[in-house]
Nucleic acid binder design. Structure first.
Lengths: 201, 201, 201, 201
DNA sequence: GATGAATGAGCATTCATTCAT
DNA sequence: AATGAATGAATGCTCATTCAT
């Protein structure tokens, strides 16, 4: 019973944390990390500003938590799309980043996070770890045997191709914030040419 | 004589504006748009905080002016590098972005600007115009006749390739802020493969 | 039975109040009245913050209760130490003020209380009443017949000597907070000279 | 001229600092260090809260400055009263501590400072240095040759007597906060007996 | 033109207190 | 009786902006 009670409390705490993170994310996307105020976030979350501090030590902790949550989303994304037509994926994802939840990171938020990482070492560390994981996974995928949905590239080549893919994906994220209405056909034409080349020896 | 006097005054004003912009840019790169204070900027510029307001209406105006100045620099850059080995250029520029002036925009500043464009329509417009110009120039270069240092691509193809190049360059800028010490050989291997492909029919 | 039940409840309430006061005193000594938070006190007392409000109307009431409890302790102390070598007592007590309970008030707490009395009339009143009692007891002791462990001073003289003793004791309390490692020999030399003089006609 | 200008500015800064310190001292005496808010102090000083931060880094710096100013006052006091009838001095000073300026430290403030020294090491250090200076000066006075207004005590004895005097003075300061209306005659009787004894071999 | 003192609104954060459970 | 989530007011502090000099 003690367990049940405590799990109820824990569940509530988990829900509150997420309520806060959702609100914060919304404000961060719309106003940026620094222009979004705690009062603002609390308002959006429908609670008092003071209450937020029961769940997060300070504003930085919220930012960090959002970064980590977003990175996990991205990481999950990678796992799911292993056997996929990557070019098509990239095109279809373009401009579809949900503001709040769902697969793929909001691109405005990625910009905000990247800019913040320039100054905040904790965020830089989180981002760095993510970068390594992502590139490692890409390289593994490219180097893996075809029977395993891999592409059978020699390891060294897989490394440089993984880097290129990463750069390409990030470049698309930036472009997404700047040209949400970009001509998809144009993009698809390009990606359908180039992506397959990156996966062949 | 009135003209001469006013042109002297104008020249002085121009110099002062640039002095402020240089200082602001330095602070923006190191601290970001919001953490850089006017007092800070004034200090770096070696003038009083109040004086800045004689040359710029407010902080936002400074940000916008910096964006515009940077975009002009970039635009000039494009014209100069037409006949160049692009892959080599990209590699050699990587991580060499000067903190203050020179060719190519400081990547931290680009992030800051891109993030800000998400919220400030004036900055978004400036950035958008620049994006179009850049992509247009790239497309023209790719579609241009070989005698003119062009690459002779069919116009439609040139469009999609220009987009890809733009995405690639922006992706590199982000990567630069995150991995300044990235293995150049790895990067060069990749770019030397892919960039030439983007320039051939 | 109703009486028994209610006395059980009263006993419990008394215990709870003391538990709270012990915790509060500890925090007050370490952090001062204002820096010690209710959450802090509740934590130290091993109970919830809300529960404290069942036993005390507010934080001020706790402070007042602590003052009163301390004064009662001191009052009891006086009765016990009538026949004593006062100089030796003062020296041996110096720096030995227990953090929590026991004879003599913690000197940091005395400071805190005295400072608070400057503003809070209730605390000032409690302290004043105590001061009068203490000085009265001292005067009585000094004026009392030697057969009763008194010192046989004429009443008027006893009054002024009692005042001096009180001043001396309070001065020692302040010094204790400032120089806990004070040279005891130095102190003893001084007190052994002066205290006996204060007890002789 | 530059010197004249800068000295004008410095003079103004000095005046502002004092204006702030006077206001702060008033609030600190009436409300205590922690209950006095910056807004409160600014109000009393007739300026905006923000302006205070041009002259003091933070609230602690104000407290420290007040402590140091008060200690200097006390120190000056000592120098002036070397040849004086100390008992009479102590009596006549009793209860005359001005709220704001003048000779002698406000006793409520001394309590506040002493209590704060318990927690703030910077204040403890300032107070400690003062204590040493004061006791040293007292000992020197007691040990000095009579021709120099000294009392010709042997050095070791002078030390313990100086300690006693210090304790006595501090005790009087506390008493002053608690019994501002204390019977002066009673006090004088006592001091006139005891103080001379402390100055004789 | 140039200064920097001054303001006032805004920010993150804390905490005594309340109240549904 | 007991909890601890929730509130709201207050606090120390920062900073873009103004303006008398």
């Amino acid at each position: 019973m003690a367990t049940e009670q405590s799990s109820k409390a824990e569940e509530r705490a988990r829900l509150q944390r997420n309520r806060i993170l959702d609100a914060a994310q919304q404000r961060f996307i719309e106003n940026g990390f620094h222009a979004a105020s705690m009062a603002n976030i609390a308002d959006t979350a429908g609670m008092s500003a003071g209450l937020i501090y029961r769940y997060f030590e300070n504003k930085s902790a919220i930012i960090l938590a959002i970064v980590q949550r977003q990175l996990e989303l991205l990481r999950d994304d990678i796992k799911l799309h292993r056997k996929v037509d990557l070019a098509a994926e990239l095109v279809s994802h373009y401009g579809h980043a949900c503001t709040t939840k769902g697969s793929g990171m909001n691109s405005a938020l990625l910009l905000e996070i990247s800019a913040e990482a320039t100054r905040d070492p904790q965020i830089a560390a989180a981002l760095d770890e993510f970068d390594r994981t992502l590139r490692g996974a890409l390289a593994e995928w490219l180097a893996g045997p075809r029977e395993n949905d891999g592409h059978g590239l020699p390891p060294a080549l897989a490394q440089s191709r993984a880097l290129l893919l990463q750069v390409l994906v990030e470049g698309l994220k930036i472009r997404e914030t700047r040209e949400p209405e970009l001509d998809r056909a144009l993009l698809e034409t390009g990606l359908r040419e180039i992506v397959p080349l990156l996966m062949k020896p």
